[in-house]
């Protein structure tokens, strides 16, 4: 990401942010979102993956007002302004949790587990949350 690690400045790397935890129970989902927004300043090739309980992060209809937390669902809709448009949701994770393949807070690509594995293996850097 910088000249310090020996890379040529300006080289664009593929970054994947892997989200595997449900929102609100832990700080992971919100922290990941903030890191993603900050990383947008570095003009890298950013993708977001939502699998396992992480699929709950991008479902429409989350309302944490009753547990006294800020609803950060609307912030996923700002990702487009940050030129982050590659959002992948794993189909098997949805199915395992009895969730439909629509009804997301933001446009996403629903992919199979095999496709998700391939997406992961194509990255230069994988950041897990």
């Amino acid at each position: 990401m910088s000249a310090e690690d020996g890379d040529t400045p300006g080289v664009i790397k593929r970054f994947l942010f892997v989200n595997r935890k449900a929102p609100y129970g832990t700080i992971y989902a919100l922290e990941a979102l903030e890191v993603v927004l900050i990383s947008a300043a570095f003009d890298q090739d950013v993708s977001l993956a939502f699998l396992d309980d992480g699929v709950y992060q991008v479902l429409a209809g989350n309302d944490p007002s009753g547990i006294g937390m800020k609803n950060f669902s609307p912030t996923y809709r700002a990702l487009d302004d940050y030129d982050i448009t590659k959002l992948y949701v794993e189909r098997e994770s949805l199915t395992e949790r009895g969730l439909p393949e629509d009804g997301f807070v933001v446009p996403v690509n629903v992919v199979s587990r095999a496709e998700m594995a391939a997406i992961m293996s194509q990255q230069d850097v994988v950041l897990s949350f």
Partner: peptide, 15 residues
């Protein structure tokens, strides 16, 4: 109000 974040300068300029 819409996105629950203050946009980064680059995003603000564009928007």
């Amino acid at each position: 109000n819409e996105f629950q974040i203050a946009p980064a300068i680059r995003v603000l300029t564009k928007a």
